[in-house]
Nucleic acid binder design. Structure first.
Ligand SMILES: [Fe+3]
Ligand SMILES: [Fe+3]
Length: 854
DNA sequence: AAGAAAAAAAAA
């Protein structure tokens, strides 16, 4: 076969313009090569080691392999998809049949191993492993058998194509090649997919206009185009010009948390895992950013992803990260993206996207290429939900593209203490894979139970010894070679919280709260009442507004529309934030929304019983700053309402369904002294870990009274059972642990993607829920433009109330919203005079939010 | 009868 014939198989078409398969393969190889050329040396050298070749040779090898991804297109099944183009082949004796494989990725997997073995003396099992990575480029590592792929002339044609590409990229045999670890194969698959996406954009790589190009010219031209594209999308990350604290932040020298963090990092080598446990407000974010600056200089990083528990906290972190990156002074500027389902709606992100349209060198901005759903993590820098990162280690399509996106970077996970057993298991799996993808990980957390700290560290480096006597606040770290470091954080400002138990049953709770408020607010003051259930918060609000002027009480929970939530949050911040205009007297009634991330400061706090860590979290909003306070509210007292438990089985009411009763009871028992109740004096930060360990550890030291022993054991068993099943479920959703398949590439072919249906795999376990759009009755549902769509979306309220969910999920979403990405999953809630027109037991208004009659 | 929270079309 002459070289000319290699060009006669089509690969891509649009109308009459045909791009030969080998040209697309060439384009893809060239892009892969250019992508690798701009990666940090440490990353390249890690991959080169995996393949047992020199760093100089790696881009060439990767380019060659990437190019081969579509060799399966030179097959009867694929060529027959354009009968007009396959007809001449038929006349020349290329055989077509009805049983031809039409999925070209399967054809690649079927045909490539033999070619690699025969033409390049590749070792058998390596040939299969490599082919599998290339054949995954539609999102799935397949183990499926292909149908007919063509024999005789077809084999000769594929062989000619391979030899043609080999002459251009890799002119040697593959005999001496090392066998890469499974994570390295996954990275290869990611690189190949990304190169394929980039090279498939016709505006960047126009289809051939003549039947046979001048090869040298063609390659030079495509190389130029690929290089421009890679630099335009800023896949390269230049090293920071500024690394001094006063250059990066608004303060001149590191505080204790940051000093100890850098001390720990200095004892380890990239890739490493570092756990920073210290109180909120101790500058953990800046500590993580300082680690990024440090590792960028020392080791060279591909970028950073900062993962948070919610979309809202992600939104808030975006401008902070933009400021940090600007101060880092990256010469060519860089990409920064916001990653979550509703990122489009964020103003700051929109600004970054607009500024990329005419980016100046040195700018931090966001190119639109990365805004597609699966591409965000490929951008050098990102901020967003943890979920986006978790998808890199779940059995979902293109997980390996996400893993490639995170490879070689720094991943920061914030608020690690806040996740449940399901998500923690996903985190373990992700960390385990990233350790082998040359990624460093920083975990930011409040106090962790020691068992969890240990598991997080061992997820990165399995056999490492973790001492049991690590004392909060502290920084702990381990690197891939097994070096371990742990240091206490000393010199934080000590403080004390006085936690006061108040016995109250759910029936007399509102009255108790009212009398406490009347007594303590006699000279004025700012109070927060935190209830565990929305219903009780609503009821309390109803009572309090009869005893206080309307402008002094404010209700806040998550069952308001998005728009209203923002409004309430704004009102709360304007009054109770550190720089707020504090009223003489004011009361906020809230659920757990208030314990999330709001920087607010109350003089008085009354709360429902909650697990000890959450009580302390809530207390973080009590006397947060130093300021003058009313006489009666000078002591930092946290009033905790709890049911009677000394003489009988406590009735936790609705709280029982929010928190597990054994943890609630163990927390309550912290207050029991002999027959009586006593307050609890908590020293911050030193006294915290003993309390956490006491409630969450394996043996609960305080004596459990006789009458509670049985129920406690039952609740404990149930909780452990629930956690085990969550962990098991997460284990099924996630890839197996990296350490279990490091040398077993066959695992990749066995990953079952749940019938290719992503929906079945979730990042979080939730009760079924529904998004409702609050709509005035009679209003028409059509959306004329983007503005109207956003307006409706801002009226959404989510609920997981069983009866309501059942009612609304039984109906189809309105056809008018089917094309709207924002509203596609929503149902309208028609209201008239604050009441649902469909269900008399359901109401919505801006004062109470969504409310169910009980 | 139960908090808050995410994701969800489809990439070549
Ligand atoms: Fe393809
Ligand atoms: Fe392709």
């Amino acid at each position: 076969m002459t070289e000319e014939d290699v060009f006669r198989f089509w690969g891509k078409t649009s109308g009459n313009v045909v791009h030969p398969a080998v040209c697309h393969m060439l384009d893809t190889g060239i892009v892969a090569c250019e992508l690798l050329m701009v990666q940090p040396h440490g990353f390249i050298s890690k991959l080169a080691d995996e393949f047992g070749i020199t760093t100089d040779a790696l881009p060439q090898l990767a380019a060659f392999l990437a190019a081969l991804h579509d060799i399966g297109k030179i097959s009867p099944g694929f060529q027959a998809k354009r009968p007009d183009l396959s007809a001449p082949l038929k006349l020349e004796g290329y055989v077509f049949s009805r049983a031809d494989e039409d999925r070209h990725t399967l054809s690649t997997l079927e045909t490539l191993p033999d070619l690699l073995i025969d033409c390049l003396q590749c070792e058998d099992s390596l040939a299969i492993a490599l082919s599998r990575a290339l054949a995954a480029h539609h999102g799935v590592f397949t183990g499926q058998e292909a149908q007919k792929v063509g024999a005789g002339k077809w084999i000769k044609a594929r062989r000619a194509a391979l030899e043609f590409l080999s002459r251009l990229f890799w002119d040697k045999s593959l005999t001496g090649l090392g066998f890469p670890s499974t994570p390295a194969l996954v990275i290869l698959a990611g690189l190949v997919s990304v190169s394929d996406w980039l090279s498939s954009a016709e505006e960047n790589f126009p289809y051939l206009t003549c039947p046979r190009p001048d090869l040298r010219e063609y390659v030079a031209d495509r190389t130029q185009k690929a290089r421009e594209l890679v630099s335009r999308l800023r896949f390269d990350v230049s090293s920071p010009a500024a690394t001094e604290f006063h250059q990066l932040f608004d303060f001149t020298s590191p505080n204790p948390s940051q000093t100890v963090t850098l001390q720990t990092v200095n004892e380890l080598h990239h890739p490493m895992l570092v756990v920073i446990e210290s109180p909120m407000g101790s500058g953990k974010t800046e500590a993580a950013q300082a680690v990024y600056a440090h590792l960028s200089c020392e080791a060279g990083l591909r970028g950073m992803y900062y993962a948070l528990p919610t979309q809202a906290t992600g939104n808030a972190m975006l401008p902070r990260t933009a400021r940090f990156l600007t101060r880092l002074g990256l010469e060519t500027g860089t990409e920064l993206h916001l990653l979550h389902t509703n990122a489009d709606l964020n103003q700051d992100y929109e600004r970054l996207r607009i500024s990329s349209l005419n980016a100046e060198p040195g700018d931090v901005s966001a190119s639109s290429w990365f805004t597609a759903r699966k591409r965000g993590l490929l951008a050098a820098h990102g901020v967003g939900t943890l979920d986006q990162a978790l998808l890199a280690a779940l059995k979902v399509r293109h997980f390996f593209v996400r893993l490639f996106g995170l490879a070689g970077k720094l991943l920061v996970l914030d608020e690690v203490h806040a996740y449940d057993a399901y998500m923690v298991e996903e985190i373990y799996r992700l960390i385990g894979w990233l350790a082998h993808c040359h990624t460093s990980v920083v975990l930011l957390s409040a106090t962790l139970p020691k068992a969890r700290r240990k598991k997080l560290i061992q997820a990165f480096r399995p056999e490492v010894e973790v001492p049991d006597d690590i004392r909060y606040p502290c920084v702990t770290g381990v690197d891939i070679s097994g070096a371990f470091a742990a240091h206490p954080i000393e010199g934080l400002k000590p403080d004390t919280i006085y936690v006061e138990p108040v016995i109250a049953e759910s029936t007399d709770k509102p009255a108790r709260i009212l009398s406490l408020l009347l007594e303590k607010l006699a000279d004025g003051g700012c109070a927060a009442c935190i209830m565990n259930t929305v219903g009780e918060a609503q009821d309390l609000h109803e009572l309090l507004r009869h005893h206080f002027p309307a402008d002094e009480v404010l209700l806040f929970h998550s069952r308001f529309t998005l728009e209203r939530k923002l409004r309430i949050e704004h009102d709360i911040l304007s009054r109770y934030a550190s720089d707020g205009k504090r009223p003489h007297r004011g009361i906020v009634i809230a659920t757990q929304v208030i314990e999330q991330s709001l920087d607010v400061d109350f003089d008085l706090m009354i709360t429902d019983l909650a697990p000890i860590d959450l009580l302390l979290q809530r207390a973080g909003r009590l006397h947060r700053h130093e300021r003058a306070r009313p006489q009666l509210l000078r002591p930092r007292n946290l009033w905790v309402l709890m049911p009677e438990f000394r003489s009988r089985l406590p009735d936790f009411g609705g709280s029982e369904y929010v928190y597990t009763p054994d943890i609630l009871l163990k927390t309550a028992l912290l207050f029991s002294a002999e027959e009586d109740l006593s307050h609890l004096e908590v020293s911050i930060p030193t006294g915290v870990s003993a309390l956490i360990e006491c409630v969450y550890g394996d043996d609960f030291p305080p004596e459990v009274p006789e009458h509670l022993l049985g129920p406690m054991r039952g609740w404990e068993a149930k909780r452990l059972g629930d956690e085990t099943s969550q962990t098991f479920f997460a284990a099924c959703s996630a890839l197996i642990e990296a350490k279990a398949c490091l040398r077993d590439p066959d695992y990749l072919g066995q990953i079952s993607m749940d019938n290719d249906d992503d929906c079945a795999i979730v990042t979080r376990l939730t009760r079924p829920n529904v998004m409702l759009v609050v709509v005035e009755n009679g209003r028409c549902l059509t959306v004329a433009d983007k503005a109207e769509e956003r307006k409706l979306f801002s009226s959404t309220v989510a609920t997981d109330n069983t009866a309501i969910v059942k009612h609304f999920l039984a109906k189809e979403p309105p056809g008018e919203w089917a094309d709207s990405p924002l509203l596609r999953h929503c149902r309208p809630l028609f209201v008239s005079g604050g009441k649902s027109v469909e269900r008399p037991d359901l109401s919505y208004d801006d004062e109470f939010g969504l409310r169910f009659a009980r």
